[in-house]
Every structure is written in C-alpha cells, then in structure tokens.
C-alpha cells in the first residue's frame, strides 16, 4: 500500500509543498508585510536609513529569541533572559568604567549569561524542579534584584567606544550614500543565526536537542545525556542574553538595571510566531528569524504611520494567537492526510 503511494509523484510533491509551507510559511507572511509597508510608505520604508534602523531595533530580540528557541525546542522555557541581560549589562558597564581592558569587558556579558544559564539548567536537573517555568521565574526575580543591588539601583554610564562597537558600529558600503552601511550588529546576528542553524542541523548535540524535545525517554535510552543537553540549552540561552547585553550597551552607552523588563515575553512570542512548538521538538532557526522580523516590521510600520505604541502591543498579542491557531489548523489538516 505504501509502495503505491511512493510511486505517485503528485503525492510526493504535495508532501514537499506541505512541508515547505509548514517550515517556511511564515516567510510568506514576512514578505507580505514588507510589500504592504512598502506600498503604504513608498518614500521611506525601503530607504537604507530605515532598513538599518530596523536591523538595529530587532537586534536584542533576535538574540534573546535565538537562545529561547534552543530552550523551547526541548519543551522548556527561559523566563530569566531579560534579567540576565540586565545583570550582564550592569557588570560589563561597571567593569568598563573601572578600567578593565575592553577585550575582557566584551567577554563579561556572554560569560555572566552562560553562568546563570548553567544555574538554571542545574536547578532543573539537579534540584529536579518540576518545570523550567519555576526555576527561571526564580532567577528572573533573583537576578533582577542583583541588577539593582550592584549599584543600589543607579545606572552606570560612560561605556567606552570599543565596547559599544558591536552595538553601534557601521561598516560603510561603497555605494548608496550616507546611510548605506552594514551595522556591525547585523553581522553579529548573521553569524549567530547561521551558526545555530548549522549546529542544529549537522552537529550531534543539535540533533540531540531535537530528540530531547521530541521524546526525552527515547533520548535517554539512546544513551543521550539528557540532563547535559538541558544544561547546555539554558547556558546557550544565557549566553545569547549576554550578547544582547553587549548590543544594548552599544546602543545606549550605559548600563541600567531596568533593561529588558518583559523582554523574555517578546523573545517567546517571536519563537512561537516563527512556528516552533511549545511542546518541543519542532521549529527552525529561519522561522525564529521570521518571527523576529514580523514583530520588528510591525513595530517599524506602526511607528512610521504614527500609530500608538499601545496598538503595537495589542496587534502582537493578536498575531501570537493567530500564529498558533494556524499551527493548530495545519496540524489537524496533516493528521487528516
């Protein structure tokens, strides 16, 4: 019976089309948004200035969402990334303004982030807390408290230009005028996204992350160190939060303890809009990037049209619900197939 199906080329094509739609359908949404915004704002939307602006604005969410993606693929969640980013920016700002050499300062953010991520992972695996929601809710609060404790709630300004380069630096293009530049942050995003996509596809640990999300019991009896995989994804999530802190240090030039309150929710939203399953085992890096773009383009477009920021939040909420609903429909359609 199955042999007959395999010989039918139209079925194969339908499978392929279904799979493309499933994995990359969100890219069509991004494309539609770009065309719509272009049509609504023909004079401004496609200018070099606006495009670099969008890239800079999505940087933070892009990095947080990339880390969140790894966690969500294991059916986990990391609520602490906003707080971790804030602690990272505080510590690197303090280190930088007290004369630590800048190459070392650059390491502080990712290291602090990875360290707290490891603590999250160990809380989950060693303390056996029942759900990562609990552990990371704890670190969300504990780490936010530390952000305020280190300077008694005061911001730290005066971050050096070398440290700010990742967030503000531009590489000028030989054509296109004053605003035709590639932001250094765009290159950082490109490297991180391509790196993670390659890692998830080609490296055993990347596949094991999918296996843990798909069936932890199967992963365990296959000899995969499930706890090790979990600690790794939370460490990676913290690492990317630390990188996001570096971007924000560049953009703002100072460390302030209120940075990124609620940022974890934007990151989760981007991952979910991008088609990853909250129940683990499903989701692509490209989808995450599309999710980040959907949110970024929405904000940019509404700003350009002078629509209230309150509407942005409302619309993003509706989009999350729609995105997941479409996912439910798609799944139901596939189950019927």
């Amino acid at each position: 019976m199955t042999d007959a199906v395999s010989r039918n080329p139209t079925t194969g094509w339908r499978d392929l089309r279904g799979r493309l739609l499933e994995d990359y359908g969100i890219l069509l949404v991004v494309l539609a948004m770009i065309l719509l915004l272009w049509a609504l704002q023909p004079d401004y939307f496609m200018t070099a200035q606006n495009i670099t602006n969008i890239i800079r604005q999505i940087g933070m969410n892009a990095l947080l969402a990339l880390g969140m993606y790894l966690v969500i693929v294991t059916a986990g969640i990391d609520l602490s990334v906003g707080s971790v980013m804030a602690l990272a920016i505080m510590l690197l700002a303090i280190a930088d303004t007290s004369g630590v050499p800048w190459p070392l300062v650059l390491l502080i953010g990712p290291l602090v982030g990875a360290l707290i991520g490891i603590i999250n992972g160990l809380g989950l695996t060693l303390l056996k807390l029942p759900h990562p929601f609990i552990m990371t809710l704890g670190t969300l609060n504990a780490v936010r408290g530390l952000c305020n404790l280190v300077t008694d709630g005061r911001p730290v300004s005066g971050i050096s230009d070398e440290v700010r380069y990742l967030g503000t630096g531009d590489i000028p293009l030989p054509f296109g005028g004053e605003f035709a530049v590639i932001p250094v942050s765009a290159i950082l995003l490109l490297v991180c996204y391509c790196g993670v996509a390659w890692f998830m596809r080609k490296v055993s640990l990347g596949r094991h992350i999918f296996a843990v999300g798909g069936n932890p019991q199967a992963a365990r009896v296959s000899g995969i160190n499930v706890n090790g995989v979990l600690v790794f994804v939370y460490a990676a999530s913290g690492f990317f939060a630390g990188l996001a802190a570096l971007l924000m240090a560049g953009r703002t030039g100072s460390g302030y303890p209120n940075l990124g309150i609620g940022a974890e929710l934007d990151a989760i939203a981007a991952v979910i809009i991008g088609g990853a399953s909250f129940f683990g085992g499903r989701g692509t890096v490209l989808g995450v990037f599309a999710g980040v773009l959907v949110m970024g383009l929405l904000r940019n477009g509404l700003n350009l049209m002078n629509i209230s920021a309150f509407w942005q939040q409302t619309l993003i909420g509706i989009i999350i619900i729609l995105a997941v609903w479409i996912d439910v429909l798609r799944r139901r359609a596939r189950a019927r197939r």
Binding site: R207, F210, G214, N215, A219, S222, G281
Partner: peptide
C-alpha cells in the same frame, strides 16, 4: 513504548 523520537 518504542522510544523513538517521532519528530525526527
């Protein structure tokens, strides 16, 4: 329970 990862 087979211990396969259905998503792979």
């Amino acid at each position: 329970d087979l211990a396969l990862a259905g998503n792979m």
